[in-house]
């Protein structure tokens, strides 16, 4: 599969921890503005694939191309810089800084990218509103519910206007209603900004918010034939 115009593309990724391979020749590609669900049983290699795609870990072999860059050839410094400016992350738990207010949490990546405090907090407030959690702006993560926390985390991932959002089981710790609210808001916000979303989930109802799905089994990713 050679996807013309893809934003992020991985080929033949292999990664082993010790003797057993976590990825065993995985291919993947995503276009700008596309939401792709990565499904598959627990332990099949979904998170490893996401970490390789995002340049968090380096595969043993295979390549990851992001726009004109070959991530797998870049230095660690260069990769980290690219991650900060171009990628956003949402994980299952615990990614908010407990000492900061929710507003400061959302503003943090903007500040790290050099935005001034006032402008960063202004943009952060906009994103909290879009995610319908502006009422918790002054609270700390320990004072809000899990569903609110995930929405703050989505706001934080999207505020710097990343070109790719990596979400690893973003609804895994939420009940169905809250999980679906988070997914609806995440997919709408991503489509509105043209960001691509790599959505790792084992929940079919969450995957149904994506444009298509890829299934990982035993470290091999398969594009599902016939998926629109």
């Amino acid at each position: 599969m050679t996807p013309a115009g893809s934003l992020l593309e991985a080929r033949a990724l292999r990664k082993a921890y010790g003797p057993t391979p976590a990825l065993d020749g995985a291919d993947f590609s995503i276009h700008p503005g596309e939401v792709v669900a990565v499904m598959g049983p627990s332990g099949s290699g979904k998170s490893t694939l996401l970490h390789c795609l995002a340049g968090i870990i380096r595969p043993d072999s295979g390549t990851v191309r992001y726009g004109p860059h070959t991530l797998t050839d870049l230095s660690d410094t260069h990769r980290s810089a690219l991650r900060r400016t171009d990628f956003g992350f949402v994980f299952q738990f615990g990614q908010l800084v407990p000492e900061l207010t929710c507003l400061e949490n959302v503003a943090l990546p903007l500040r790290l990218n050099g935005t001034r405090r006032k402008a960063a907090e202004h943009r952060a407030r906009d994103w909290l509103e879009r995610l319908e959690v502006d009422d918790v702006a002054a609270k700390r993560p320990g004072e809000i519910s899990g569903g609110q926390g995930q929405r703050v985390a989505v706001a934080r991932a999207l505020a710097p206007q990343p070109r790719v959002v990596f979400a690893d089981e973003p609804t895994g710790a939420l009940d169905s209603l809250n999980g679906e609210r988070v997914m609806g808001l995440l997919s709408d916000a991503a489509r509105a900004t043209g960001a691509a979303v790599v959505l790792v989930t084992h929940e079919p109802r969450v995957a149904a918010y994506a444009d298509r799905e890829v299934v990982v089994r035993d470290g091999v990713a398969r594009e599902m034939a016939g998926a629109a």
Partner: peptide
């Protein structure tokens, strides 16, 4: 048989996307 199950999953998810 694995391919058969994958094909069925695609069909189910297609319908689930429409319903969503």
């Amino acid at each position: 048989a694995a391919e058969l199950l994958d094909g069925q999953r695609t069909e189910h998810l297609r319908l689930m996307r429409g319903l969503t």
